[in-house]
Amino acid sequence: MTFWQLTIDANDPGRLARFWARALGYQPVPPASPDTTWWRHYRGRLAGRPEFPDRLFDPAGHGPALWFQPVPEEKAGKNRLHLDLYPTARDNTLSPAQRVEVVEGKVAELVELGATVRSRTEDFDDPADGVCFVVMNDPEGNEFCVS
């Protein structure tokens, strides 16, 4: 596969794009490099606009593009796919307490942006593999995890 994007149904694509831009560190313009066919395609689709209101791109050009597709119906039921965010970068040198601190900092930032917390799990039975994750909902109710 040379290119793929993740498409997320949204009632308010702009709102979700702004939320996920902050959550992921993505931007609403395609990256200049690497200079791939797809990034050139998206830059051409801007057609003079400064940015996309409903699309996001990894500024490094490595991660998938995100498109927030407008749909009329509300979200119903549990997601069959969700994103996992790792603000700790899965750094094994962090102590369990440090992991919790980093995760909780990101969770607080996301709550400020309109996310809600569904549940928290902390299990440090094995200090070498301390698990800490928080299940959240984005502003339209889509589930995701922060770990």
Rank of each mutant, 00 (worst) to 15 (best):
H41L: 15
H41C: 09
H41G: 11
Y42N: 02
Y42W: 15
R43S: 08
R43K: 09
R43P: 05
G44F: 04
G44M: 10
R45P: 03
L46E: 01
L46Y: 00
L46T: 00
A47L: 13
G48V: 05
R49A: 12
P50L: 05
P50V: 03
P50A: 14
E51N: 03
E51Q: 11
F52H: 04
F52Y: 01
P53Q: 06
P53W: 01
P53F: 01
P53C: 03
D54G: 03
D54M: 04
R55T: 07
R55G: 01
F57H: 03
F57T: 06
F57K: 03
F57I: 07
F57C: 07
D58W: 02
D58N: 07
D58E: 03
P59N: 04
P59W: 05
P59I: 00
P59M: 03
A60S: 13
A60P: 03
A60E: 13
A60D: 14
A60L: 11
G61P: 08
G61T: 10
G61C: 14
G61N: 11
H62L: 15
G63Y: 00
G63F: 01
G63R: 09
P64D: 04
P64G: 12
P64R: 09
A65Q: 12
L66Y: 04
L66N: 05
L66V: 00
W67P: 05
F68G: 05
Q69T: 12
P70E: 15
V71R: 12
V71Y: 08
P72C: 10
E74M: 14
E74Y: 07
E74H: 13
K75N: 10
K75Y: 07
K75W: 08
K75T: 08
A76Y: 12
N79D: 12
N79Y: 07
N79W: 04
L81K: 08
L81G: 11
H82M: 11
H82W: 07
H82I: 08
H82K: 08
L83H: 07
D84I: 04
L85Y: 02
L85C: 04
L85D: 03
Y86N: 15
Y86C: 11
P87A: 03
P87Q: 00
T88W: 04
A89Y: 12
A89E: 14
A89F: 14
R90D: 08
D91S: 06
N92S: 14
N92W: 09
N92R: 13
T93A: 15
T93R: 12
L94F: 10
L94S: 08
L94G: 07
L94M: 13
S95G: 11
S95V: 12
S95L: 10
P96G: 07
A97R: 11
A97L: 11
A97I: 05
A97P: 08
A97Y: 02
Q98P: 03
Q98I: 00
Q98S: 02
Q98K: 02
R99Y: 02
R99V: 04
V100L: 11
E101N: 10
E101M: 10
V102G: 02
V102S: 01
V102K: 04
